[in-house]
Design a binder for these strands. Structure first.
Length: 220
DNA sequence: GCGACAG
DNA sequence: ATCTTGTCGC
């Protein structure tokens, strides 16, 4: 798997993959669900991906990958910065997840190819984008109660959902990644939500990445 | 040219 | 994302 190292090549890659994204409902309820996230320290990126059993949201396993950063953070090109390490971590898993949640957008992206959609196409797996803030699109503030959501719009099209995962807290931005649709994505995110704003598997990946970062920091 | 801008 | 202490609120 080759990754571009500059904006020019990255744009070409996005152009070649953007039309390969497929949106349709998940055929069956997932058995295993995973989530990925990353942390940074010096010139390295720490990718963490954890797998949960969908029924009852039970933790099963996690994998970690640490490698050098090869691309800067540029809005709209997050995949090229975090994708390489995250994909490696996903490939190390013993349990193949039925759907993967990403900390970022799915199709709610300027080119319709956020990190969730991009990696979904690369791995040919169902993926969901669950970002903590908006990248593109307009919306009305959703109701203040957990579970309430409003549509994220772009050119008259619904590209995602602004979902309240807890009462009176900032909403998250959910969008279909690949091989799934918005309704199913929202249902899954709601199912994975405990008493925190961030879905449990995603929160787990975040904590693991940060914990590894802490260890790498105190090099003994 | 100006403002926006996932992590 | 990351840098950072205490602090207000459920």
């Amino acid at each position: 798997m080759v990754w571009p190292l500059n904006i020019k090549d990255a744009k070409a890659v996005q152009e070649g993959l953007r039309h390969k994204v497929k949106i349709f409902p998940l055929s069956k309820q997932p058995r295993y669900i995973a989530a990925a996230d990353a942390a940074f320290i010096d010139d390295k990126i720490i990718a963490a991906v954890c797998v949960y059993k969908y029924q009852g949201i039970e933790y099963l396993e996690h994998e970690i990958v640490v490698r050098k950063i090869t691309f800067p953070y540029i809005p709209g090109y997050l995949t090229f910065r975090e994708g390489p390490a995250i994909v490696e971590a996903i490939k190390k898993l013993k349990t193949i997840p039925d759907v993967i949640i990403f900390d970022g957008q799915g199709i709610a992206h300027p080119k319709g190819l956020g990190i969730a959609s991009h990696i979904g196409v690369l791995l040919d797996m169902p993926t969901i984008g669950c970002a903590k803030s908006r990248l593109t699109g307009t919306f009305k503030e959703p109701g203040q109660r957990k579970g309430q959501w409003s549509r994220l719009m772009c050119n008259g099209k619904t590209i995602g959902a602004v979902l309240r995962t807890r009462d009176n807290v900032r909403p998250v931005f959910v969008s279909a990644g690949h091989k799934i649709d918005l309704k199913t994505s929202v249902d899954i995110i709601v199912h994975c939500t405990g008493n925190y704003r961030i879905p449990l598997p995603q929160r787990c990946a975040d904590m693991i990445a940060k914990s590894v970062k802490k260890d790498l920091g105190k090099r003994v």
